[in-house]
Design a protein around this nucleic acid. Sequence first.
DNA 1: GTTCTTTTTGCAACCGGTTGCAAAGAAAAT
DNA 2: ATTTTCTTTGCAACCGGTTGCAAAAAGAAC
Lengths: 334, 334
Amino acid sequence: MVVTLKEVAERAGVSRSAVSRTYTEGASVSDKTRRKVEKASKELGYSPSLIARSLATNRTKLIGLVANNFQNPIFLEVFDLYTRALQERGLRPLLVNLTNETNPEHSVGMLRQYNVDGVIVATSTLPPRFAHAFKNANMPVVHAFGRFEQGSPVHVVGIDNRACGRMAADTLLRNGYKSIAFLGGPKNATSTQDRAEGFLSQLYSAGVQVKAETYAVAYNYEAGQKAMQELLDGSKIDAIFCGDDLICMGAMDAARRNGLSIPDDIGFLGFNDMNMSAWSAYNLSTIRQPTPDIILSSIELVVSLVNDPQRALETRIFPCSVVERGTLKPVKPT
Amino acid sequence: MVVTLKEVAERAGVSRSAVSRTYTEGASVSDKTRRKVEKASKELGYSPSLIARSLATNRTKLIGLVANNFQNPIFLEVFDLYTRALQERGLRPLLVNLTNETNPEHSVGMLRQYNVDGVIVATSTLPPRFAHAFKNANMPVVHAFGRFEQGSPVHVVGIDNRACGRMAADTLLRNGYKSIAFLGGPKNATSTQDRAEGFLSQLYSAGVQVKAETYAVAYNYEAGQKAMQELLDGSKIDAIFCGDDLICMGAMDAARRNGLSIPDDIGFLGFNDMNMSAWSAYNLSTIRQPTPDIILSSIELVVSLVNDPQRALETRIFPCSVVERGTLKPVKPT
DNA sequence: GTTCTTTTTGCAACCGGTTGCAAAGAAAAT
DNA sequence: ATTTTCTTTGCAACCGGTTGCAAAAAGAAC
């Protein structure tokens, strides 16, 4: 049914090695043989089996792409970028959905069976022990959107969430807000923890007491809406920093439902700058995370890791920036 | 480095076949041998290599998941369902992003190299020749969200878009709308064509002349917004059926920007019922497509196709339903 | 035309599993 | 206790490639 190297060899009148070498980068074949092989290949419609090749070379060109949040549209942007960038490099993503998965060993097993060349854990909401588990299984692993910390046991590409939290605080303070609240993502996500820490400590340094501190149970709309409603029931605030745009949208809709007008009655500052944030229904001022940079860099890193597993641990941090749209009152002229 | 079957065999004091059989469904092994093998496996930390296995069995348990719209959040829901459902069956998705890809042969090559067991083309915006190309390459292929038509050359799981178009027309008419417009997705998508045809023909049958018929250039928000703005500049309408919720959201925001209030000045009916459609910022009345049913059924179908490639061509159609929310005026009591 | 280098080629072993077949062993029937 | 039947086991070939090694061929130097 399927054309094999052997048939091509016979047709071309050369050895199997010759055929193999024709399709191996940097192998020694004369132009004459190569032409014979290519002719026979074309006639038979041959294309080498990556499965067989990877059995011999121990390289699959498969990269495990591990995620666990399929509710936040930001991840669609993430998948788009990953799949395309991997494809361009001749690699393929093996998508692993860890929603509701709690056992790291289980996911390691899944990827090891396929002998993936490397793993990219693309989420901040997975406990660090998952990334560790891949590392312990001796797979090159990069934690994209992971935590920035000294002595991280795995390679990390991401942002400095504490610094971003401080940036958020500065932004709200600069715009003259006084009654400020924080609405984070799930409390067990390191990204949430760090954003909260940076934000709250910066407010504190400025002598401003935070009016409310609350956390959504998930990085999604419904959780944001719910948390905001509870917050509004309890306190009077004039601005809020949300740890994620989607949560922020839920929160905005909750505020509007309570008859508040944005940004006159209450200001919102989001996080991520996903495509939807620019929609006119939200027009969200937010802190932009350089997602494409993180993704490309994590791919580049995992690829070099494949070639050099002993490579020194690395943490790559990209800067964030404030995107001003319509959910914060303009800075008062002084 | 990695533990192989041979080492397990030696340690357990049995032949390699015995080990293999222990991990092969339905093979003949005595309890005694099985226990010896399992003990040795555990001690060595063995797990069979799927790569090696698939070389011998010609089954990879890999399913190519082909998509080309990474801008519409509905696809995140689609990926979530696919990845989880495949995982539960011990299969893995190999995600292929065909954004900007125009050459079917190229994508076929990518999947054939990995020897995928089957392919699911999950989009309505890919020209049918892509699905055909997979079929011609002798891969089991199912076109999910594909076109419902007699004599389709590939297996299709989806909805009857014409019937859904008619359903949309009936809904608007029933609610008393008279100046009705249609805003479709990209004109070259079969889903768009069919929804338009059903919708327009049903209006025609009811003696209602459509006020405007226009198409967005893509299944995304910006395209919807732009098309709606142009439409509003040209005609006066009281209701519109959009061929996709995301397009509809763009259209709604365009209408609001023009000072129109929903549903008092203008009614909206969407298509798909994605998660976001329930958000209070939109609260969209829409036609629900039974996405989970389509996904599960397409997986089930591709799996049976793998086991029986000669299986007769099949078209599986699931019914849609109207979801009433807040973007249409309530039916006038008679 | 020899000799020495360098390049190209084929052989054969290997990657880590599966499986048809025949022999060995266990269980059932007589 | 023998024969018959059924189950379990190991051998060896195979899946479709790669690659170290030595021989063959080609090219360079003399």
